[in-house]
Amino acid sequence: MPFPEFWEWVQALPLSEYIGFTYWFPLLESIHVLAIGFVVGSILMVDLRLLGVAAVAYAASRVTRELVPWTWGAFVVAVITGTGMFMTRATAYVENPAFQMKLILLILACANMALFQFRTFRDVALWDVGTVPPPAARAAGAVSLALWAGVVLAGRWTGHII
């Protein structure tokens, strides 16, 4: 892994040691799980609407606009709490294959979201109130579900390898 000195420096910070040796680690971890519940729970509702299998009585744009801010808000909380845990053993986490896989899946999930937001969602007016969205939107929903489930699995696996 590049920058080994950097990760060692992060790990040796007083904050990192404080988190690692006190109740702060489980505190951050429990909030991390709660945040994951909100990230996946909110994006699940959006994805199922995009797949045309749930909440079809509501416009896809409405469902998306009301829920995606929750996804991002919870995601920020998950990143902050996750960073706090990462700092305590940064050198081990960067070498951890499950953690590396988690980051790759996260990047893919964000890319999928961006692609949907800036390509497929632009002509949402054409399919907003129809029951089943077009194939591109359904694909975005299905890919998102698979990627977020993968993020959860890789994230949980990370703790078993450390």
Binding site: V33, I36, G37, F38, V39, V40, G41, S42, L44, M45, A55, Y58, R62, V63, E66, L67, W70, A149, V152, L153, R156, W157
Partner: peptide
């Protein structure tokens, strides 16, 4: 992981229902 995904489903159903009832989330539903 299935346990955590289950938590996510409870969040997406019961927790969001409670938030809707309290007027905090998904106002159009």
């Amino acid at each position: 992981s299935f346990h955590i995904l289950g938590i996510a489903c409870v969040t997406g159903s019961s927790i969001f229902l409670n938030l809707r009832i309290l007027g905090i989330a998904v106002p159009s539903q």
